[in-house]
């Protein structure tokens, strides 16, 4: 019997039209437009706002100028800061902590499990401005909860946002995003047949051995997925702006905040667009790796 189609090609095209238009205008066109703008000296105000000149690679030369590349507040400094931020807060912080949280959740009582998961997920679902303000209060020098605890323990308090701003955003982002890795690993662990662990229990394996020798090899695909996704998100995240505004003196100015400052504070759209292009190229590399793996997955799951 011939399989008849439920929706003719024409009706299908009609169904696709609204989504195509929206995605086209607000996702695809910006992709090409940002490349175009990065070759101009477009600004927000003045003559070059209406009639920008084509400047070739000048914006890119300015970004990669070796004389200022590593200077604080310049592109190179921001790029390196962002890489450190991603390595520490996503790859080490969120992924390892998420793994630990998921593993702990497997082996504690249901009450404790729901307490743990609620706390971790609350950090993740609340709106970012609320979280930013909560941390501002948490880190306050005179009255903040953190310094209150440190004083209570007899430890010296600190003005963390001024003294260690980079570590603040690293811990902040780890705390904020660990829930995703935890949930992904939770569902990964649940996909492992319990009999594997029971057999290991009979053989007297420790929890660490079970994690290392049974669970981790089986969820390798999930681990890779997790690492790529959280890397991409952390690389593009803007939330630390709400806590530090990129300061003090550019010490927490990751690339997303740098782009914002160049484009919307200094009004240099051309240069801001060039930063955007670099960000997109890095995103593209990660996305291609991810899609390649995600496409392979059905085979791997056999």
């Amino acid at each position: 019997m011939k399989k008849f189609s439920l929706l003719s090609t024409r009706a299908g095209a009609l169904f696709l039209a609204p989504a195509t238009a929206l995605v086209g205008v607000f996702v695809i066109i910006p992709f090409f437009w940002v490349i175009f703008v990065s070759f101009t000296n477009r600004t927000l105000l003045g003559r070059t706002a209406v009639d920008p000149d084509f400047v070739g690679l000048q914006n890119y030369f300015a970004l990669f100028n070796p004389a200022t590349f590593f200077t604080r507040g310049q592109f190179g400094f921001s790029l390196i800061l962002t890489i450190q931020f991603v390595l520490l807060s996503a790859l080490i912080g969120q992924a390892l902590l998420g793994l630990l949280l998921a593993w702990l959740s497997q082996s504690v009582t249901p009450t404790l499990k729901s307490f743990l998961q609620t706390a971790v997920i609350a950090a993740w679902i609340l709106p970012e401005v609320v979280i930013g303000f909560a941390w501002f209060a948490f880190l306050d020098y005179d009255n903040g909860t953190l310094n209150m605890i440190l004083r209570g323990l007899g430890l010296p308090p600190g003005d963390w946002l001024l003294q260690q701003p980079f570590w603040v955003i690293v811990f902040f982002n780890t705390w904020r995003g660990a829930a995703f890795s935890m949930m992904l690993f939770n569902s990964a662990f649940q996909s492992i047949p319990p009999s594997y662990f029971q057999a290991a229990d009979v053989a007297g394996a420790t929890s660490w051995q079970k994690l290392r020798d049974i669970a981790l090899p089986l969820i390798r695909g999930h681990v890779v997925t997790d690492l790529i996704l959280i890397t991409m998100w952390t690389f593009n995240v803007f939330t630390p702006f709400l806590l530090t505004h990129g300061g003090p003196s550019y010490r927490t100015e990751i690339l997303s905040i740098y782009t914002y400052r160049i484009a919307f504070k200094d009004f240099e759209f051309g240069k801001g667009a060039a930063v955007g292009v670099v960000i997109m190229l890095i995103n593209l590399a990660f996305a291609l790796v991810y899609l390649r793996i995600a496409h392979k997955k059905p085979v791997e799951a056999e």
């Binding site: 992709f31 803007f238 759209f269 801001g272 955007g276 995103n283 990660f286 996305a287």
Partner: peptide, 13 residues
């Protein structure tokens, strides 16, 4: 495209 064109990359366009 949706993963490449993030808010931080596309705020200018």
């Amino acid at each position: 495209f949706s993963s490449v064109v993030s808010g931080s990359a596309a705020m200018v366009p």
